[in-house]
């Protein structure tokens, strides 16, 4: 188990969103989370990465056997947790390449490796840009500023490929993507799959799951995981929605 969430209660403002959530991510597996709007999917991902908005009121998240809750967002990232944002924020004035090199070198220092110089980093970045079908000017543009929805999502995947995290949370990575972009993004994700790494894919649609082939489907509703099953569950959710799960329980 790489990430283990036990009895997690969390609120945003005064509203309790997660109400005793349990979830375990296995090494080398792809876990998908599906659920209706407002179920708590994004709050779960924010709780894992330590977003300021989320207050954990009970429970624990352990990662590689240690609690995450005492770690700052950057410490969690350095330990190998990565979230692809649903709506990546625009940061005018921060150069995309400079930002990513700063992030990569922070991680390399943390891992006891040598920093990459500008030339080494640009070579690495350009290789990934080409593989993702991204324009070369992504190197010089400001971080996410003026990017289309597809460009923003590809930029998230670019960061993931370069930072090589161990737990990857993809929060609605498929929203707003056309077929070509979805394919490119999925290929980028699949390229990262190995026996040490885990994925947590949050989505409303089966489309991306056709590409990513998850090992487990978890249904999150009313702040809890109500059901976990294999990929066959997706078809039933698509055709019948979520209400039957509560009836089944």
């Amino acid at each position: 188990m790489i990430l283990d969430i036990k009895n997690l209660h969390a609120k945003i403002g005064d509203k309790e969103i997660l109400k005793g959530l349990n979830l375990s991510l296995e090494k080398g597996k792809v876990h998908a989370i599906m659920g209706p709007n407002g179920a708590g999917k994004s709050t779960l991902s924010k709780a894992i990465v330590g977003h300021y908005d989320v207050e954990i009121t009970a429970g624990d998240i352990s990662y590689k056997g240690k609690s995450l809750l005492e770690l700052s967002p950057e410490e969690r990232a350095l330990e190998g947790i990565f979230m692809s944002f649903q709506n990546p924020v625009e940061v005018p004035g921060v150069n995309n390449a400079y930002f990513l090199r700063t992030a990569l070198n922070a991680k390399r220092i943390h891992d006891g490796k040598e920093e990459l110089n500008a030339a080494q980093f640009l070579r690495l970045m350009r290789e990934h840009l080409t593989a993702l079908g991204m324009k070369p000017d992504m190197v010089s543009r400001s971080l996410n500023e003026g990017f289309s929805g597809g460009e923003k999502k590809r930029n998230e995947i670019l960061q993931m490929l370069i930072l090589e995290p161990d737990v990857i949370i993809l929060d609605e990575i498929d929203s707003g993507l056309d077929i070509d972009a979805l394919k490119a993004v999925s290929e980028g994700i699949n390229q990262m799959k190995d026996e040490k790494r885990s994925f947590l894919v949050i989505t409303h649609y089966s489309r991306i799951l056709d590409y990513l082939k998850p090992d487990y489907i978890h249904v999150l509703k009313d702040g809890k995981i109500l059901k976990t099953a294999g990929v066959d569950l997706v078809e039933k959710l698509e055709s019948e929605g979520y209400d039957w799960i509560k009836d089944e329980l």
Partner: peptide, 23 residues
């Protein structure tokens, strides 16, 4: 939101603040 985004990529809060001010 900008500050958190930078931190979520492993950049320290102090460095993230500097980056945003310079930006």
């Amino acid at each position: 939101n900008q500050l958190f985004y930078l931190q979520s990529r492993g950049i320290s809060k102090i460095e993230a603040r500097k980056m945003l001010i310079i930006a």
